[in-house]
Amino acid sequence: MHSIMKWRARIGILLTGLVLVAVLVWGFLPRPVAVEPAGVSRGPLTVTVEEEGRTRVKERYLISAPVSGYLRRIELEAGDTVSAGQPLAEIEPRRSDALDPRSRAQAQAQVHGAEAALAAAREELRSAAAQAALADKALARAESLHEAGDISDDALDRAEAEATRSRALREAAEHAVEVARFELETARAVLASHGTTADGELFSLQAPADGRVLKLLRESAGPVQAGAPLLELGDPEQLEVVVELLSTQAVQVAPGTRVRLERWGGDADLEGVVRVVEPAGFTKISALGVEEQRVLVIIDFSSPPEQWRRLGDAYRVEARFHVWEGEDVLQIPASALFRHDGGWGVFRIVGGRAQLTPVEVGRRAGLTAQILSGLAPGDQVVSHPDDQISDGVRVEY
Rank of each mutant, 00 (worst) to 15 (best):
31 R>M: 04
312 G>R: 01
110 Q>S: 14
303 S>V: 02
21 V>I: 14
42 R>P: 01
220 S>Y: 07
257 T>G: 10
222 G>T: 00
120 A>K: 15
376 A>K: 11
179 V>N: 00
109 A>Q: 13
264 W>D: 12
31 R>V: 01
267 D>E: 14
73 R>P: 13
44 P>E: 12
110 Q>T: 09
258 R>A: 11
326 G>K: 03
225 Q>R: 02
371 I>S: 11
64 S>M: 12
219 E>N: 07
308 W>E: 09
38 A>V: 01
118 L>M: 11
249 Q>P: 07
276 V>S: 11
320 R>L: 10
73 R>Y: 07
252 Q>I: 09
75 E>V: 13
104 R>Y: 03
329 V>I: 12
9 A>C: 06
329 V>D: 11
84 A>V: 07
96 S>C: 08
87 P>L: 15
321 F>I: 09
96 S>I: 00
160 E>Y: 03
223 P>C: 04
254 A>T: 08
343 G>S: 12
138 A>L: 09
283 T>L: 09
3 S>L: 14
240 E>N: 10
279 P>H: 07
205 L>Q: 06
18 L>T: 15
165 R>N: 11
54 R>W: 05
319 A>I: 03
395 V>I: 01
180 A>R: 09
147 E>P: 10
205 L>V: 05
353 R>W: 00
263 R>S: 14
48 T>Q: 05
175 H>D: 07
29 L>A: 07
207 A>V: 04
269 D>I: 07
197 T>G: 12
190 V>H: 13
214 L>Y: 09
332 I>A: 13
269 D>M: 08
285 I>T: 14
186 T>E: 09
295 V>E: 11
184 L>T: 14
176 A>L: 13
66 P>L: 06
122 R>E: 11
225 Q>D: 15
42 R>G: 06
166 S>I: 00
85 G>F: 04
59 E>I: 00
338 F>D: 08
215 K>M: 04
216 L>A: 12
345 G>I: 01
355 Q>D: 10
173 A>W: 06
264 W>H: 06
121 A>Y: 09
37 P>T: 03
